[in-house]
Design a binder for these strands. Structure first.
Length: 749
RNA sequence: UGGGGAUUAGCCAAGCGGUAAGGCAACUGGUUUUGGUCCAGUCAUUCAGGGGUUCGAAUCCCUUAUCCCCAUCCA
């Protein structure tokens, strides 16, 4: 776990500490209507991760309440994903459909309580009656049916006596609720459809809002964690569980921001479109952000888990850079996999002064990866090098082979170009070169300095392999439609050449092809006769980047965004009158006057306190700031205008500092105690005597010499640090004004 | 005539009145038989804008702006 906790874990710890629950139970509740993607991985990591961190457990539950879209195939994909990521669900996989009988009972209970009714409006009418975002809805006339009638109708719905859409069961909540979700939400609908698990047993199916909270309750879930778009549904969640008067404890819902990633799409609809439309090759196409896709591509669970850890959990919609994911997979594979040589785009090199062949022992791992293992590299007079690794007229800073620049063949000899052979179109066909016999890797006595080492394979010994190179599926960072697809997202290289040990020894399934990237033996299409490797991710490439950057001289058009100021609603006449009085008679500033004048509760609170203490400005400040907050957050407040007046009096008389006043005020909020009593009992009278404070400052200065140095070097922000430290030493009782002055003096001397 | 969330660097993200964490990206320099890795360093006088309270504000108050979600018998 990282050092700072996310808000969900903070909540879980609070609940545990408060004894609200003794064991944490979470759940991962996908609907089995599509393949899970990296966004699900985030959710899995959160739900299973929290359960693991707090010694609880996590259930895997299929939210299968809509028989028309769901399938057992997806259930398997979901199970695979969780397992592959390394998590275990508690007991067996759960299904909301297992709870259908129980959920039906709860529906009957609700009807009996008069809290749900059978509505017989048609779909269109229901929509119409619901109203709009700005207009209240109105209740259906069927809402007046008696409990008996509702019970009978519900029973008959269940028995299949009605056609789809003839009736629905709705909760009786509030058709004019500001939250649209609360306008008598549907609980059950009739669907004469075959369910992949319950078959034809049911012809009514519970809606998400009804089934989900009850499934959570039935399983004893404590923290029901979902994505932000369900925030509006939380009210129903709470309503259903409360309305049923269930025995506690009950679960509560919390929401986090779903994962967004640039250059990729995450919606089920769009993924389905890609798969069904054959824009990709199935759900496990390595270009897809599905778990199956990443798995097929060669990603490791560790990399994905680490990614989930790195991106954090918060409530702000965000778009994570794919570079972050790519970093995670490189970071993981770097320390794990063998390095081998594979030439993607071969250029033949004939070494004119070499005869025969030999085998060179070469480690699978570079010096900085502490792993054992090596293989034999065959060497001969005809080799392939990467076409990119030779340039006839190189740009400045090019380290590789040129007619005038020798290069090391990695693990072998230094090579010098002698002649470039081209075809009739001027394309280089072959290079004639010489090697330096005394430059063999490990016992080089040639004294030749080269700028780089390039990879190569012996033409005669190399194996031909197929490489599948993947680029971003989309060409734009925020893809919307099929038109944004990158037409070049897949390159199949049929004739790459790899050193023989990879095929013959199979030291691993994942490799780093030196200087290229990480590759994975395709788990499905790979055969010994026709080896196939998927490119997982390229190596970081600072050379290519440098070359590319030279071309377009990009201008950083940083336009400062212009913020449009909106208009403030005008004040009413009476508010205006108050405002005038505050400004002109009481000398308040316009901001405070404005706040007070516009809020009847605040202004009357203010006037009352003013009757007790004639300190208009101080009172106004505290009422408009502190009191306002409490009034906003709580319906009833425990403190009185008289007490506020008492508090302000102490501030005015400098008995206490404004810092202490906040502390006192906090306690008044808690229990309505008199401020004078709080100050008395806690001994909060402020310390203003410089003779008491000065030694404390000296002590702080003595203990923080490093910060003193930084301060003197110009970091004036540190001033607050010193003041804070001194204040802390007196438990906040030192008079901050005095402390400020004294610290200032000491630091400038 | 709405309600609910959110806003800290190019991208994530801590921070809860007293020194603007960390990661990715980017950029220097060093090591390197991978233009990889690794190592050292740089990268927010400022937290969406404006005002207020305070000795002190990213944090408290007011206000404006922007973005997301809600009117499926989907989840």
């Amino acid at each position: 776990m990282s050092e700072s906790k996310d808000f969900l874990r903070v909540k879980v710890e609070e609940d545990l500490k408060a004894g609200k629950y003794t064991k944490i139970i979470t759940r991962f509740p996908p609907e089995p209507n599509g393949f899970p993607h990296i966004g699900h991985a985030k959710s899995i990591y959160i739900n299973f991760g929290i359960a693991r961190d707090y010694q609880g457990h996590c259930n895997l539950r299929m939210d299968d309440t809509n028989p028309t879209t769901e399938d057992m195939r997806y259930v398997e994909a979901l199970k695979d994903a969780v397992t592959w990521l390394g998590f275990e669900w508690n007991e067996s996989v759960r299904f909301a459909s297992d709870y259908f009988p129980k959920i039906y009972e709860y529906a009957v209970a609700l009807v009996k309580m008069g809290k749900a009714y059978v509505d017989s409006l048609n779909e269109e009418e229901i929509r119409e009656y619901r109203g709009t975002i700005t207009q209240p809805g109105r209740r259906s006339k069927y809402a007046q049916r008696s409990v008996e009638e509702n019970l009978e109708l519900l029973e008959r719905m269940k028995n299949g006596e009605f056609k789809d859409g003839e009736h629905v069961l709705r909760a009786r909540i509030d058709m004019s609720a500001a939250n649209m979700k609360m306008r008598d939400p549907l609980l059950y609908r009739i669907r004469h459809a075959h369910h992949f698990r319950t078959g034809d047993e049911w012809c009514i199916y519970p809606m998400y809002d009804f089934a989900h909270c009850l499934s959570d309750y039935i399983e004893g879930i404590t923290h029901s964690i979902c994505t932000l778009e369900f925030e509006n549904n939380r009210d129903i969640y709470d309503w259903v569980l409360d309305a049923l008067e269930l025995t506690p404890p009950r679960p509560y819902q919390y929401e986090f921001a779903r994962l967004g990633m640039n250059y990729t799409v995450m919606s089920k609809r769009k993924l389905l479109e890609l798969v069904d439309g054959k824009y990709v090759n199935g759900w496990d196409d390595p270009r897809l952000p599905t778990i199956a896709g990443y798995k097929r591509r060669g990603y490791t669970p560790e990399a994905i888990l680490n990614f989930c850890e790195q991106i954090g959990i918060a409530k702000a919609n965000s778009m994570v850079d794919v570079a972050q994911l790519e970093f995670c997979i490189r970071d993981d594979l770097n320390k794990k996999v063998p390095r081998v040589m594979c030439v993607v785009d071969p250029l033949e090199v004939t070494i004119e002064n070499y005869e025969g062949e030999e085998e060179i022992e070469a480690s699978y791992y570079p010096h900085d990866v502490p792993k054992e293992g090596s293989r034999k590299l065959p060497f001969s007079n005809t080799i392939y090098i990467e076409r990119d690794d030779f340039m006839e007229t190189p740009p400045e800073g090019y380290y590789r082979l040129t007619p005038n620049q020798s290069v090391r063949l990695k693990g072998a000899y230094i090579l010098t170009c002698k002649e470039v052979i081209k075809d009739e179109n001027g394309v280089i066909k072959q290079i004639k070169a010489v090697y330096h016999p005394d430059s063999r890797s490990g016992n080089d006595t040639s004294g030749i300095k080269v700028k780089s080492a390039i990879h190569w394979v012996s033409a005669k010994h190399a194996k031909q392999v197929e490489l599948r190179l993947y680029e971003r599926l989309y060409k734009v960072d925020m893809p919307e439609s099929l038109e944004d697809l990158n037409p070049d997202s897949l390159h199949v290289i049929k004739n790459a050449f790899i050193e023989p040990a990879v095929i013959e020894q199979k030291p691993d399934v994942r490799f780093q092809f030196e200087r290229q990237g990480y590759f994975y033996a395709d788990p499905i299409d790979y055969t010994d006769a026709k080896p196939v490797f998927n490119k997982i991710v390229g190596l970081k490439d600072s050379w290519n980047k440098k070359v590319e950057k030279k071309e377009p001289a990009e201008k950083p058009t940083q336009t400062k965004k212009v913020v449009v100021e909106g208009e403030v609603a005008p004040m009413s006449e009476s508010e205006l009158k108050l405002y005038d009085r505050y400004i002109n008679e009481l000398n308040l500033n316009s901001e405070i006057s404005n706040i007070l004048a516009r809020d009847a509760k605040l202004s009357s609170f203010y006037e009352e306190s003013l009757n007790i203490l004639n300190s208009p400005v101080s009172l106004a400040n505290i009422v408009a700031n502190e009191v306002a907050r409490e009034l906003k957050q709580n319906e009833v407040i425990k403190f009185t205008p008289t007490q506020i007046a008492g508090l302000v009096k102490m501030i005015d008389e400098e008995t206490i500092s404004s810092k202490i006043a906040k502390q006192v005020f906090e306690q008044m909020v808690q229990n309505g105690e008199n401020p004078e009593d709080i100050v008395q009992s806690k001994g909060l009278v402020q310390i203003s005597d410089p003779n008491v404070i000065e030694p404390l400052i000296d002590e702080v200065i003595a203990k923080n010499q490093d910060n003193i140095a930084k301060y003197k070097a110009g970091n004036k922000n540190l001033f607050g640090f010193f003041v804070g430290a001194v204040l802390k030493a007196t438990a906040g009782k030192a008079n901050p004004k005095i402390v400020n002055q004294l610290v200032e003096q000491k630091l400038s001397s």
